[in-house]
């Protein structure tokens, strides 16, 4: 497959997925409010002690982003039904292009998810100003793309299964642990004004590893659905 064709296909898939999500609103109207509710539940569970909440706020945001953000990454509306998949195959769609396009859409949606949840966290937990906070923008972007990659990968492993909605989180949660750890440690390091280079490197490595794995396994995985 020509390289131009590959990116063209990835772009078409991403555009279609975005359009579908825009109409179905699965991430926007369901998962994002769900995440916001989760952020409200935590203070009710652990107590409304303000200094404590300020301290755990960033961590809770990251945990909620991971647990609920993964629902964005393998949302039902991004899964192809068997006839749709056959059609894509016969159109000569490269499974790797499909993976890239799909992960790109999920990254974008996860960024939106985070953009909504950050103010909610600040309002509810009042974590105070973190020195060097602009770095967190980079961290959130890498968390979004990493989660999108691992979610898309797990979503294609569980495509079409009856247990998909319960099984995929089980696969994603442990595999995305380095993403959570990396992001959380950047917050910690920034608070203590230490170097964040190692953690940024970890996040970047995770993203790179997941992207390579996703692209390499896309074709052998696709055969399975047929």
């Amino acid at each position: 497959m020509r390289v131009g064709g590959f990116w063209q296909q990835a772009k078409e898939i991403a555009r279609k997925d975005l359009l579908v999500e825009g109409r179905a609103g699965e991430a926007l109207y369901i998962t994002i409010p769900f995440g916001a509710v989760a952020l409200m539940l935590i203070p009710l569970a652990i107590g409304t002690d303000r200094p404590l909440l300020a301290q755990v706020g960033p961590g809770m945001f990251l945990a909620v982003s991971l647990l609920f953000g993964m629902l964005v990454a393998f949302r039902q509306t991004a899964a192809d039904t068997p006839p749709q998949q056959e059609l894509l195959t016969l159109l000569g769609t490269d499974p790797a292009a499909k993976f890239v396009g799909r992960a790109a859409t999920s990254t974008l949606l996860l960024v939106v998810f985070e953009i909504v949840l950050v103010p909610v966290t600040i309002l509810l937990y009042n974590p105070g100003r973190i020195p060097g906070w602009p770095w967190l923008i980079l961290v959130l972007a890498m968390l979004a793309s990493g989660l999108a990659l691992v979610g898309t990968l797990a979503g294609s492993v569980t495509a079409g299964l009856r247990t998909r909605n319960t099984l995929t989180p089980l696969l994603v949660a442990p595999l995305s642990m380095p993403l959570l750890l990396g992001s959380a440690q950047v917050v910690e390091a920034l608070k203590q004004e230490q170097s964040i280079l190692l953690w940024i490197t970890l996040l970047a490595t995770m993203n790179l590893a997941l992207a390579v794995i996703g692209v390499v396994t896309a074709r052998p995985l696709e055969e399975s659905s047929r």
Partner: peptide
Amino acid sequence: TRARRSAILGIVAFVQVPLVYFSVTLF
């Protein structure tokens, strides 16, 4: 389908093991 998908997950999982170990050790 089972063989293929689990083969891929088995590979992904094992590739992840050193990354997980490395990140926790670093932590």
